[in-house]
Design a binder for these strands. Structure first.
Lengths: 194, 194
DNA sequence: GCGAGTCTTGACCATCCGGTCAAGTTGGCG
DNA sequence: CGCCAACTTGACCGGATGGTCAAGACTCGC
């Protein structure tokens, strides 16, 4: 859905996304009806369909926007750091910080990943993130500072650590980001063995 | 729902769970209706409600049963291995192997984790699994062979690696379990750094 | 103050869904 | 064989849901 929007319109659209995000995170996507969203906002149902052609589209937009935002944050954090290992560390810290500030999105993304309707969008997002990580890993491997294993698998392993620590300590609990980041980084770099 | 079941009844019940599992994995839990399940099986709707009091109950049963099965597999694999690091390795391999044989369950569990209705069951399952891992980690720490960090966080990190590698290489792709297991184990034990 | 495009309303619709139930069938056991 | 519990059928129900739309309100440039 593409419409000419005034400032008022853009604000309304954002309200709808924010409100929907909150409800999706609380109750889940399917159990949250469009009526729930507009009621919560105190507006008529037509408002929703003025800005989005379907509930599905709203979620897809939300996923695209949040991913764009997360990626921007990661790139800002990494800047032009030349050390590939440092870059990985900065990326991990940026992800944890972002998810901490956007807890709602974590569960929404987790759900979307399990739904074939949204999986394609999520897959693309993830492929991009993995490709970023792979680049740093390859640099590290060339420099002889990172184990010479399949960089793609290593990238997924790192993302797995970040996702699970985020879920447990930043979404379910409310731990200090730096404490979690420290464990995540040292686990990824040095593993368990002493 | 508790009923006296003959062999025929137990078979039917299992058919329903298997069929529902397949459909849940394919289309998702919410989009799969009870009618879909019984139609696929070619039986009347009443059959479903003879064995389960609700669609919700079926999923809860499925989650409980699958978790029980996975845990049994892990314990069998670990046996009475005395080396805690070996035990962790055997646990990782057992999990990967089990999920490989039960791909459908992976996405169902992933969905259930995002739905507050089922999260409690899942949380209990996960707590048990984490507690198992923590035990091995603590043994390793006492022996001075594992980094002296918060064992709970380390356990979550390991589970994160296993979950993400499972998803990417055993569910989305169809890689060789041993190859994935090797990477998972070496990543968890030694990390990235050379 | 008027006209046009942006925005809002909320009743309405077709459809579907989880769940019920009265009635009928099956099969094992005494 | 006859009985009874286990099992099956499928029409039916109340309610909710995603989505439509005709009508009206707002606002901004002219």
């Amino acid at each position: 859905m593409r419409r000419k929007l005034t400032q008022r319109g853009r604000d309304r659209r954002e309200q709808l996304i924010d409100c929907a995000a909150r409800l999706f995170a609380e109750r889940g996507y399917h159990p949250t009806s469009v009526s729930d969203v507009v009621e919560e906002l105190g507006v008529g149902k037509g408002v929703f369909y003025w800005y989005f052609s379907s509930k599905e589209e709203l979620l897809a937009e939300l996923l695209k926007a949040s991913n764009h935002d997360l990626r921007k944050r990661q790139q800002q954090a990494i800047g032009d750091e030349p050390d590939p290992i440092k870059r990985i560390e900065l990326g991990i810290r940026a992800s944890l910080t972002w998810f901490r500030e956007h807890r709602d999105y974590f569960s929404i993304i987790a759900f979307a990943a399990t739904d074939e309707t949204f999986a394609p969008v999520l897959r693309r997002n993830r492929d991009i993130a993995i490709a970023d990580t792979i680049r740093h890993l390859k640099d590290g491997i060339v420099e002889g500072r990172i184990t010479d294993a399949d960089p793609e698998m290593l990238a997924h392993a790192i993302h797995g650590v970040v996702a699970e620590l985020t879920r447990q300590y930043l979404v379910e609990q409310d731990e200090d980001v730096d404490r979690i980041a420290a464990v995540a980084v040292s686990f990824c770099l040095d593993g368990l063995a002493r």
